[in-house]
């Protein structure tokens, strides 16, 4: 794999806000371990999905990669350059190559800026085009994202657009600089179901035409299955499973991945998959369980799981899992302990 982006030990702890009284009574500061020592890479042209439930750290990871927030520890390499070591000017130049699309197209567009100005704004900020040139590029970009006739859309304000159209504007704005990487954080979760597919297909078209790479962040595994090449699943700040899409959906090895997949609703009156019962709910990210973070809910947890953090280990070529055991999910039993010395 020739990665466009790589993370090494990427970590982000947020200090917990406390009241004055609590601060004078205790000297200890608590941290929310939003992202804790994660490693992954994304190949050029790939759609890599970070999946997980709310609070798992997927959005924080996306923001760290663009350095919208500073990591507590770890490295982020973009085409070999350490993003975390860049100064302001270096970062500004890098931002042209990495852009973000947010979940809420109602909040991510300036309500007082016309569509044409919003889409052309990045060109202006980076001083990349004359005014006439900018206008041309904006119009051709609006056409590309399906907002036609572009002259008409360029003059509208965001409130005159539907949610789907707004998300198209956000996409046009993020790709007008011809970036290499787009971090898309739940880009379709606020879009009505009947229109979601158009936005997803537009993202796929843009990848083909512009050679984009995506970091796609979602809680919706059905959408992940449709769009991704590879999937990384996070739980409480850790990557627990990382593999090809087909492997992830057909042969998940982590008990959490197994449970999550079994709970996804299917447009059918007959459920083929057997639902997996899980104990409790996701613990607070402030009081993270010792050992494997999932052990409090895992059906197969042993004493070892409560003490030793399982590493993200490559069991099969290209299939990484952070669990001490090989589990037969059909038979509901542990087959054997993983031998971390054995390479695939």
């Amino acid at each position: 794999m020739n990665p466009i982006i790589e993370t090494h030990g990427l970590t982000k702890y947020f200090p917990v806000q406390r009241s004055f009284l609590e601060r004078i009574l205790s000297r200890r500061t608590d941290y929310v371990k939003a992202v804790d020592d994660i490693d992954f890479g994304i190949a050029k042209g790939e759609i890599f999905t970070l999946a997980g439930e709310s609070g798992c750290g997927k959005t924080t990871t996306g923001k760290l990669i663009l350095r919208l927030i500073e990591p507590t520890a770890g490295k982020i390499l973009f085409e070999g350059t350490d993003v975390t070591a860049l100064d302001a000017e270096g970062l500004r130049r890098l931002r042209r190559k990495m852009q973000m699309v947010f979940q809420d197209p109602y909040a991510s567009l300036n309500p007082r800026m016309r569509v044409g100005d919003a889409v052309g704004h990045p060109l202006q900020v980076h001083e990349l085009a004359s005014e006439a040139e900018r206008k041309d590029r904006v119009l051709s970009m609006l056409t590309k994202v399906g907002l036609t006739p572009p002259e008409q859309f360029a003059n509208l304000f965001p409130h005159q657009l539907s949610g789907g159209q707004r998300q198209r504007v956000a996409l046009a704005r993020s790709v007008i600089l011809e970036p290499e990487l787009i971090v898309a954080d739940e880009p379709v979760s606020m879009i009505d179901v009947s229109l979601r597919a158009t936005i997803i297909d537009l993202m796929l078209d843009l990848r083909r035409e512009l050679g984009l790479t995506y970091l796609f962040i979602t809680h919706d595994l059905a959408v992940a299955k449709y769009i991704s090449d590879r999937v990384g699943l996070m739980y409480l700040g850790k990557l627990v499973e990382l593999t090809d899409k087909s492997e992830f959906f057909s042969d998940p090895a982590h008990p959490y991945a197994q449970a999550l997949l079994s709970a996804v609703p299917v447009p059918s009156t007959e459920r083929k998959r057997k639902p997996v019962e899980l104990k409790g709910e996701v613990p607070s990210a402030i009081n993270i369980p010792t050992g494997c973070r999932f052990h409090t809910r895992c059906l197969y947890a042993t004493k070892k799981c409560t003490q030793v953090v399982p590493p993200l280990f490559e069991r099969k070529t290209g299939h990484w899992t952070a669990c001490h055991y090989e589990v037969d999910f059909q038979e509901n039993r542990v087959l054997h302990e993983i031998d971390y010395g054995k390479k695939p």
Partner: peptide, 8 residues
């Protein structure tokens, strides 16, 4: 228009 996780 609905993605189905059981289909490939």
């Amino acid at each position: 228009s609905i993605p189905n996780i059981e289909l490939t």
